[in-house]
Amino acid sequence: MPNWLYQRLGDRLFAAVVVLLALGVVAAALAIVAVLYFGGREAFATFGFFGFVLGRVWDAVRGQFGAWPPLLGTLITSAAALSLAFFPALSTALFVVEFSSGRLRETVAYLIDLLAALPSVVYGLWGIFVLVPLVRDHLELPLFTWAAAHAPALLPILGPPTGIGLLSATLVLALMIVPYASALARDALELVPQSQREAMYALGATRWEVIRRVVIPYARAGIFSGVVLALARALGETMAVTMLIGNSVNLPYTLFGPASTMASLIANEFTEAEDDLHLSALIAVGFVLLLIALVTNLIATWMLRRMSHGEGRR
């Protein structure tokens, strides 16, 4: 083979193959959007986009599909799980970065990473056999009996104390996103230069004052984008929620009673979907979930760029 051929043609060919395969990645991403949109088109056409999203009835038998109940379930469980998880996750990150060193620090950090990698189904399994009985017998039943005796008006809000439902699903969801949020917050805290801490100590600050006034402000962009990413994960979390939430699409939801999220609805009904409209409605729910996940992710990226300061941006 002549040398110029080897050089020029080889380079061109290699670049072409690389670009082609990379285009495959872009195409896959576009395919996700297209497939979910066109797959859900029949449902959107039947009920109208907002009619579908805000429709309060999901009834496969009567062919009536509104995504509001699972959408509401997703928003409730995710928001509640995130608010439960936020401070413990930040605490753990602070513990690792600011309050421990050496072996202890490594062990806790490793444990957190490990738990962040543990599959959703494993959390679900633990939820069903350990958490649900615990929640039912020690949280829901006492509350329920107390309400029955003293405040019967609360009963419709509490719902049946079966252990399977919103409360258990939210608790497990919170447990699942803690390691993830904590790992992201830890990354952000570790980026704070030691010189920043020392400068504050040198002014006569206590450890907490250094954390409060220097470390957390410095890392806030990373911490908040981590929170938003954790929210994104909670929104799409499927298996553990499906196993614990009771999968009911009937409004109104109660605190203890069964409910559903968009992801759990898809996981639960997809293989049983008989007719095209049902299938299309489930894919349409996927499209709505995609939109929400896209928006949350873009917010996280935007926050990281917007709120980063001088040194963070470099």
């Binding site: 020392e198 400068a199 040198a202 600050a205 206590t206």
Partner: peptide, 21 residues
């Protein structure tokens, strides 16, 4: 030590402005 550092201040090799302030 907090009181000591208040009485004995320190300036470092590189400037350390707090970027969020």
């Amino acid at each position: 030590p907090v009181l000591i550092r208040r009485r004995v201040g320190m300036v470092f090799q590189r400037p350390t402005p707090f970027p969020t302030m």
